[in-house]
Amino acid sequence: MDTDRTAGNNAPGKTNKKKSALFKVSPYMVIPSRVGGFSLYLKQDESFVLYAEKGELFTDEHKKRLGRLGVDHLYVKAEDYSHYAVYLHDNLLELLDDDAIPVRERARAWNDATVSLAKEAFDRSMPHSMDKKRFARIRKLINSSLKFLARDDALKELARFISEGNQVFRHGIAVMVLTVSVLSRIVTENNELLVAVAIGSMLHDIGKLELPEDLFARRPSTLSQGEIELIRSHPALGVGVCSSVPLPQEALQCILFHHERMDGSGYPSGGNADLLPFYVKALILCNEYDNLLNGEGEARKRHTPFEALTRIKSRGAAHDQDMLKLLIEVLSKAELT
């Protein structure tokens, strides 16, 4: 979320002298409708001017006028961010399907909407169990996103946003995007499966909330055997966190098996390729790839895409080779290698 510390008041057409945090919103992201829950501001020099007040009808003429003025961004007060996030969630499918909106702006909207949900799901200050309302919102967002996530140009633009941090919820988003992008190459008529796998991919590390946060930041060489076993319990703990919602079986398998390996060297079950569904094999690979990019897991070193793929290839039978070919194809077409 891009923020500015600056001024703004509630008087139309007047600059605001009271400092407040605001964040950027693309004019493309406001569809002709009533602006609910948040006001929109224009930036003029170092000041901000109210452009559309909460509840005001935002029309096509508003958007055309902004275009004529060459306005690149509108601004919303940070305290209204939750209202803006709800607005994005409610209108996301319409925004993503609108080819008049540049792909990069649609990717930004998708990222903003997804980050708000994922961050909430992984908030350590909140109850760790997944509630039905939050799960329904995640499912709705993913249902709206599948067509967009399958696009090569969308993946290229999304990569700019999902690499902005290495928090556990951002890792979940990155793994979900990669996994859906890979599986979309071979699953063309089963949206329910893709939705289930996308949910499991986003939430695959949610079991980490049940364990001390610093445990995952330490180098493996400093961990006792007991601490290693605790870390290896997070997939099973994740299934427990989600036990209160009707999670699809495929999503539960993604959470439970995301650290397994094709040669049986993974955890928690040590299951081999014959026991792992093909969609879990895609998730396992994409999880490993993103961990290497962000210096997570055993490596603790950030790798370039080329280095990450080279390291994965060197592990041979640990990963599904057909899925690896698909991942390389996806990354290549999105110009991310």
Rank of each mutant, 00 (worst) to 15 (best):
205 D>Y: 03
125 S>D: 10
189 E>S: 15
116 S>H: 12
145 S>Q: 09
98 D>G: 01
151 R>P: 00
111 N>D: 13
166 N>F: 09
143 N>D: 14
132 K>E: 14
164 E>R: 14
156 K>H: 13
180 V>L: 08
194 L>V: 06
162 I>E: 09
116 S>T: 06
169 F>Y: 15
110 W>I: 01
139 R>I: 01
137 R>T: 12
181 S>I: 00
136 A>G: 03
170 R>G: 05
196 A>L: 13
182 V>W: 02
101 I>S: 00
180 V>Y: 07
150 A>I: 02
191 N>C: 01
211 L>R: 11
188 T>E: 13
164 E>I: 12
153 D>I: 11
183 L>S: 08
199 I>M: 14
113 A>N: 11
208 K>W: 00
136 A>L: 06
150 A>E: 07
119 K>Q: 14
209 L>H: 11
188 T>D: 07
165 G>K: 09
106 R>E: 02
174 A>V: 12
157 E>L: 05
187 V>Q: 05
198 A>E: 06
200 G>N: 09
102 P>A: 00
115 V>S: 08
108 R>D: 14
105 E>G: 00
101 I>H: 01
175 V>A: 06
179 T>K: 05
133 K>G: 06
198 A>L: 04
170 R>L: 15
217 A>Q: 13
155 L>I: 03
122 F>E: 07
173 I>M: 14
171 H>D: 04
103 V>W: 00
172 G>M: 09
112 D>Y: 03
213 E>C: 01
206 I>F: 06
119 K>C: 05
99 D>C: 00
120 E>P: 01
177 V>H: 07
139 R>M: 05
158 L>H: 05
158 L>T: 02
211 L>W: 13
143 N>C: 15
196 A>W: 13
156 K>Y: 09
156 K>N: 11
217 A>I: 05
105 E>A: 02
158 L>V: 01
